[in-house]
Design a protein around this nucleic acid. Structure first.
Lengths: 156, 156
DNA sequence: TTGGATGCAAATGTTTTGCAGAACT
DNA sequence: AGTTCTGCAAAACATTTGCATCCAA
């Protein structure tokens, strides 16, 4: 069953390694596997915890280096929120933006081809070549606004 | 001439201080003044440099604390880019988003009421209350793409 | 006089780097 | 054999905090 997760990503990584004359390693594969299984928006610390359940000997440094590698290979993207970096798988995923709840930290994804299109238009106008973007909308999710309302109005 | 910069912002700060029973200080005024004059997107380190030209005795810590205060008072907004926080004046400025050039670091602003509207619509749909957003488009500005092309095609 | 504000130094938390040994090609 | 990779410890950063002192109200 392990082999059914992220087949394609593993190939992408392997190709990247060959192309750049880098070497394979068991650690990288374990980390990639954990990263892909973890779902989205993991921090380094979280990923380290997950990985170490399988292989307790893997070091924090290797997580950092692997995530950087995954980014370079186009497999991961980084989003910084609240003082620490978080990463999410990038491969084969629709492009999307993020709603981030400032109370519970939950991240909701959304996408809007319309927004993408507008961006492109503006970029063309100023001669800017888009390579990526980070669109984070900050606020309160339904759950947290409801909870706050139930708790009574806030004093100012 | 000094008194003609940021009159309104100074009033906003003063009002905030009174409302929260905080005290005025020469440092804060010097920092606010420098912040407003500095133009946009200053880092703590840059602002410290600017402020110290006028008052060499101001400490880094005070810059941090003042910028936090300005944020709380609604005078500044923070955007994290490249591992360090940057701040820009918020008061009386149109809301805008950012194009950031990955080569020269230049930041171009743009705004799109259309994008704002789309965001609002989506937020309403998922029950999310928007408090702010960070929309950073990363890429290459016209100057840098031209320079790169002139330098000849890149080898891969 | 009281409590907030400041600046230094120390602490914190995250990410990077130096290095010796292990692993890969 | 020759590199790259790894993990530890140390270093490097950006940011925050403790504290004695200063200053505004």
């Amino acid at each position: 069953m392990a082999s059914t997760v992220g087949r394609e990503e593993k190939q992408v990584l392997a190709a990247y390694l060959v192309r750049h004359r880098l070497k394979r390693s068991a650690q990288r594969e374990a980390i990639l596997d954990a990263f892909l299984r973890a779902g989205r928006h993991v921090s380094v610390e979280e990923l380290l915890g997950i990985v170490r359940k399988k292989r307790a000997d893997i070091g924090r440094t290797t997580i950092y280096r692997s995530l950087k590698l995954f980014k370079d290979a186009g497999l991961a993207s980084e989003l910084t929120y609240g003082g620490e970096a978080r990463f999410e798988p990038l491969w084969n995923r629709d492009h999307h933006d993020h709603f981030i709840c400032g109370t519970c930290g939950e991240i909701f994804e959304f996408k809007s081809p319309e927004i993408e299109r507008i961006q492109e238009t503006i970029a063309r106008r100023i001669g800017f070549v888009i390579e990526g973007h980070r669109h984070h909308i900050l606020g309160r999710c339904r759950k947290c606004t409801t909870k706050a309302a139930r708790a009574g109005p806030r004093r100012t």
